[in-house]
Amino acid sequence: MNKVDIIMHPVRFKILQVFLDGQSKTAKKVAKELKDVPQASLYRQLDTLVKAEVLIVTEENQIRGAVEKVYSLNVPAVNMTNDDVKELTKEEHLQYFLFFTAQVTSDFETYLDNNDIDFLRDGVGYRQIALHLSDTEFLDYVKDLRKVYEKYMQNTPAINRTKRIISTITMPKKEGELKHE
């Protein structure tokens, strides 16, 4: 099974989202966040992620005769590279993109299910903008964005912090012929 298939599986994708805060977690903690995933399925998918080296077992604790594993995200293993996706067919790309957008839609629907929503207070928003950038300017933009992400990804969970999911999609918009500088 390739990396894309491992990551884009619906249950495994949900599990990986739980680890986006950079914290180590037991299966019990993951189950608390993913109440809709049956326990047997959760353990099976955790095992698949460990075998694929996407999750790493960082501790094993003896608890009443059983071993409780503590898992951490192997960040380099989940980062999709150009090599990971360049062999995909158009249909596979579309399938994965549709899955990605469906997951974003599901997360947004979960937010909307709250009784007291306030986009401004909750920091919720969605928009689409167009930037006219040369290839060099675009690479600078991506580097700047990466620096911002890295600055805040170091934050650990705390009472005064809310876990926020940031999703980005970037693609060129062909208007006639694209000019490369």
Results as ranks from 00 to 15, higher is better:
V57Q: 08
F97P: 02
T168W: 05
V67G: 06
F108R: 08
L112I: 02
D122S: 00
K25N: 01
V50G: 02
I165R: 08
I15P: 01
K14F: 01
V54M: 09
N155I: 08
K14G: 02
I166E: 11
M8N: 09
L112V: 08
I129E: 14
E33L: 12
D116P: 01
H132Q: 15
K86D: 13
R127Y: 06
E177I: 14
F119S: 03
L88E: 09
Y43N: 03
V124P: 04
P157E: 15
E177L: 14
E177D: 08
L178H: 12
L20M: 15
L98K: 15
V75D: 03
V70W: 01
A77T: 07
V11T: 03
T101I: 08
F99A: 07
D107P: 00
T156A: 13
L133A: 12
T58P: 01
N79F: 07
L88T: 04
F19A: 00
S41Q: 07
L94M: 15
Y96K: 09
K174R: 15
I129A: 09
D21F: 00
K179C: 08
L145N: 12
R12K: 13
D47H: 05
K151N: 00
S106E: 15
L42V: 12
V18C: 15
L49W: 05
V85L: 04
E59I: 03
G65S: 03
I6L: 08
F13A: 14
H9N: 13
A66K: 13
Q128E: 08
L49I: 00
D135F: 13
G176V: 05
D118Q: 04
E137R: 15
A130L: 12
E53I: 01
G123F: 01
T81S: 13
T101N: 13
E53G: 03
E60I: 13
F19N: 07
F100D: 09
K143G: 10
K28I: 11
I129V: 14
M80H: 05
Q128H: 03
Y71M: 09
V37Y: 01
E92D: 03
Q45H: 09
G125P: 00
T101G: 13
G125E: 02
H93A: 11
K147P: 00
Q103H: 10
A40Q: 14
I6K: 13
S106K: 10
T170A: 12
K28R: 06
S72P: 00
I7A: 01
A31S: 05
T26M: 14
R127A: 10
E177W: 06
V85T: 09
P76K: 05
A52V: 00
V148D: 02
L120A: 14
K163H: 03
K90G: 15
I6P: 12
L98A: 13
K28A: 15
E181D: 08
N160S: 09
D47V: 02
A66Y: 05
Q39V: 11
H93F: 09
K173Q: 15
L94V: 10
N115G: 14
R64D: 10
L16A: 01
S167M: 08
V148Q: 11
D122F: 01
R64W: 02
Y149A: 06
V30H: 02
V75E: 14
G176A: 11
N160L: 05
L34C: 05
I159Y: 02
Q103D: 07
I56K: 12
F119E: 07
K147G: 12
K174Q: 13
Q154E: 15
N74A: 02
R12Y: 05
F108N: 12
R127H: 06
I166Q: 06
K147N: 11
E150S: 11
V67H: 12
K32P: 00
L73W: 07
